[in-house]
Write a protein that binds this DNA or RNA. Structure first.
Length: 304
DNA sequence: TAAGATAAGAGGGACAT
DNA sequence: ATGTCAGTCTTATCTTA
């Protein structure tokens, strides 16, 4: 456990001695006199992730050291060095030496070589890629990591593809946090068939006893409206349409994206705005036929 | 060209066997 | 466990305005 002494000379906040040292392997700064740890990691400054919209920037500013569930060891690694000397530089006794060697073995095993941990590393590097691709917030990523860990603990990943289960966990996290991302979005980015993700998703719901809030079409509306470049006025009208539809209980069991898309289309027609079903269908990720069906249903139910 | 109509097929939930 | 059924969504094709 040899520690290279850098930054010597600063005063310790606890004992007052000028004996602060930095472990250049882990980046920990602590007092050589009393062992007081000053900071475990070197904090970076500035925002950690780029933001994609105003309302997403709020939960992305950095508040501390980046310890994350999405790191294979949750960012808590300690590394046992290779020199058999203690803090003062004296050689270790024979019994202590064997103890340390045993610890070192398990230390390194627990970090990289255990199968579960390799699984994490693979999954989380993929997750990191998806974060950018799908413009996801840090909160969603953390939630995904948490769910994935639980799934792995329960042995749900065995026999299934890592990206598949990961995408399912991500989908759960999005649903829980009200982030409107569809299975198709996931499927496109992670290159796993929608069907497979869907199956893993249902598995997670069953095995982890999750109960998912129903996707709110109202949230979908905003996403589609901005994607299709629709006006604020149209969006508002669509929202009242959805509210009415909800009260008339004709929304149950319908694809929320299709519903939101139809409400937007109806709103465009009512407001005399020129938009095609095709544009909205593209933005919503549903087919024109679905829009037509929902559109028809909305008009009949609301007597428009 | 956009919108509407129709048909075939897929995937999954509810339910009974 | 397995099969059937009703309901939804997608894809494809044709018709209509």
């Amino acid at each position: 456990m040899v520690l290279q002494t850098l930054n010597v000379g600063s005063k310790c906040a606890r004992c007052g001695k000028k004996s602060l040292v930095t472990d250049n392997v882990t980046g920990e700064r602590f007092c050589g006199g009393c062992g007081f740890v000053i900071s475990e990691r070197v904090d970076e400054t500035g925002p950690e992730w780029r933001s994609f919209s105003k309302d997403e920037s709020d939960d992305r500013s950095r508040t501390g050291s980046p310890t994350s569930l999405a790191m294979h060891d949750m960012g808590l690694a300690t590394i046992i060095g290779h020199a058999n000397k203690d803090v003062t530089g004296k050689p270790l006794s024979a019994s202590m030496k064997s103890t340390i060697e045993r610890l070192r073995t398990w230390d390194s095993r627990s970090q990289v070589h255990e199968p579960a941990d390799r699984n994490f590393r693979q999954a989380f590097s993929e997750l990191d890629r998806l974060k950018d691709k799908l413009a996801l917030s840090n909160a969603v990523i953390e939630k995904t990591a948490y769910i994935y860990r639980k799934a792995l603990d329960k042995g749900l990943v065995r026999g299934r593809s890592i990206p598949g289960v990961l995408a399912a966990a991500l989908y759960v996290a999005c649903r829980e946090s009200g982030t409107p991302r569809t299975l198709n979005d996931m499927s496109r980015q992670i290159n796993v068939k929608r069907k497979d993700i869907s199956r893993c998703y249902r598995l997670l719901l069953r095995e982890l006893d999750l109960n998912m809030p129903v996707v709110n079409p109202i949230i979908c509306t905003s996403r589609i409206a901005s994607e299709a470049g629709l006006s604020e006025k149209v969006k508002r009208r669509a929202l009242t349409i959805l509210k009415d539809a909800n009260e008339m209980e004709i929304t149950a069991g319908k694809d929320p994206m299709g519903l939101a898309a139809a409400a937007l289309y109806l709103s465009c027609v009512l407001n005399g705005e020129n938009t095609t079903q095709k544009v909205i269908a593209m933005a919503a990720g549903v087919t024109e036929v679905t829009i037509r069906n929902r559109y028809k249903g909305l008009r009949e139910s609301l007597n428009i």
